[in-house]
Design a protein around this nucleic acid. Structure first.
Lengths: 329, 329
DNA sequence: CTGTTAGCGCGTTCAT
DNA sequence: ATGAACGCGCTAACAG
């Protein structure tokens, strides 16, 4: 920076101003500094900047995994928006393990992140304590939360209620539910609870629930298990598209028409869902918007701007051909 | 750190040694410092450390997109291994745009990354120049490269040759190829070139080639376009699983048996591939291993260790039910 | 609007 | 094996 200052015939402070607050500087000085920067191919030293400014211009994100498309999409959108706001993104993943998540948080804090993006709002008390002690802004994503934490997400239970209402309108009265593990996963837990509650409050028999690992083939197996226990079910509600893909495939194998014999629903609206046969009725999770909003909330907060502390996004129901009128008994 | 030093009754230099080079310090001193660190819940200041040590313990990765499962998987494995090696990961994405990629590299360098992970080896000269000028270690991933850059990946063309050999052995002589865009994508370009070369060198007619955007439904359309132009084709080689999924689906719609009338192959071996109906014959891209190796190569180089500069990984052919004997004419 | 200067918190010589 | 002191490159008062 000293080199740039010398070449432009100004002080290092002015160089710093041109770089950080260009409008606090005269047009002429800015011009000279900018051309010196260009000539010397100068690049700021981030660590020195962070040390002096007590701000790293870096945000950390901890997701359960990047292998799930919905998180990969969210992280990508997060990074894109952060970049536009002059921030970089440090990513870590927890494999859905709260202990790992806490460790990752520590390493991110050590890196001096200005803010943290979490997935879901159910986390270890120690994690929230650490965030509070270090006064690190954070935002919980994908869930709408409980009002105690900043968040941007959807109401999973409510979305499930919408979906069940759609099935009820089609005449379905006997439901089956296939869910991925709810342990350490508040999003899925809310979806499951929402589905069960909606079915019950409609006066229907409580649905048979089958829990299976998050994979297409597990969805297939789950359908068989479900039909063995509840052969009268006419609608299968899956808490994720991945399972629904397996269910639709297995239904074909079993010779059960979808939606003639069985209506099937998913959740997430992966790219896959619309290209399935039949196309999947599912709930759209606005991952890109979640990522972008999280970026804005965090950067806004760091800059001391007044920002929304809780954003509820719509999770729209996409009705496609995998759901239809319940078969006559 | 001064607080820790005071509480342990040692100098800050000793605290630093305990943290960074524990074996250069007496057992007793280490014990005292460690307990002081624990008592005070001390966390290192990453920026200060980076400034003093001229090393950020951070690696940057620029991928085309995280939306593609193969990259999300690779990034996840990369982060996991980096974490084990005491490094954090800064991610950026280029959307397959070389100009964006160069911009992202600049912001990563500004953040003081100790190394860079790139995807593919065909990049703008300006990008390589910047890397050279800043003396930043880097590794190209997914491709095996041309010997001029450190890399860890597979030989896409060779993998395609293996796959074509499999089809030839099944009696296929007329091929069609469906590829995603090859512009600014050396992996796909190599796959396409490999497929075409293998077909020609077997003495078969050059395959009809259809290029389509990277999406399942585009794969479906591509199959129709392909069959319109080359109805005699008995095998459809796709450069990505995603297209193969669309092709298989469209074949069913058209009433063409797979593999009875048409053999179909993919590339990548996404989780999806094995769960398709029929399960997809495809090439497995070892994304996890690529990520892990890239981490080791970069960290090793930063530490001045002798490390492999080019690693060729095997891309095995997974033969499944989407390929079969060519139909009799 | 611009320059001067004092740290930011650590790693790393150099002594001992 | 340990401590003292310097400086990494920059920003943020403050003064002018």
């Amino acid at each position: 920076m000293a080199d740039v200052a010398r070449r432009a015939g100004v002080s290092t402070a002015s160089v710093s101003r041109v770089l950080n607050t260009p409008d606090q500087v005269s047009r002429e000085l800015r011009r000279r500094v900018e051309s010196a920067v260009a000539d010397l191919r100068y690049v700021r030293h981030g660590a020195a900047r962070a040390l002096a400014a007590r701000r790293s211009h870096t945000i950390g994100a901890i997701v359960p995994t990047l292998g799930t498309a919905i998180f990969a999409t969210g992280v990508e959108a997060l990074q894109r928006r952060l970049d536009a706001l002059g921030h970089a993104l440090l990513v870590a993943h927890s494999q859905n393990d709260p202990a790992v998540e806490l460790r990752q948080l520590r390493t991110l804090l050590e890196r001096g992140v200005d803010g943290i993006v979490l997935v879901g709002h159910r986390h270890r008390p120690a994690l929230y304590r650490l965030l509070a002690e270090t006064r690190t802004p954070y935002v919980c994503t994908y869930t709408f939360g409980n009002g105690r934490h900043a968040c941007v997400g959807i109401d999973h239970a409510r979305a499930m209620a919408t979906l069940v209402a759609h099935l009820l309108a089609l005449g379905h009265r006997r439901f089956g539910v296939i869910t991925s593990p709810t342990r350490d996963n508040d999003r899925i837990a809310q979806r499951l609870q929402g589905a069960v509650a909606a079915v019950r409050s409609a006066g229907c028999a409580p649905p048979e629930v089958v829990e299976a690992p998050y994979a297409i083939r597990d969805g297939r197996e789950a359908l068989r298990a479900l039909l063995a226990r509840a052969p009268e079910a006419t609608a299968v509600i899956c808490t994720t598209d991945i399972h629904a893909v397996g269910v639709v495939a297995e239904a074909r194998t079993l010779g059960l028409d979808v939606p003639g014999r069985l209506s099937v629903t998913g959740f997430d609206d992966l790219a896959l869902a619309a290209d399935l046969e039949p196309p999947l009725t599912t709930i759209r999770v606005p991952a890109e918007e979640i990522g972008a909003r999280a970026a804005e909330m965090l950067v806004g907060r760091v800059l001391g701007k007044p920002v929304a502390t809780a954003i509820k996004l719509d999770a729209e129901l996409n009705v496609r051909a995998s759901t239809g009128a319940a078969p006559r008994r």
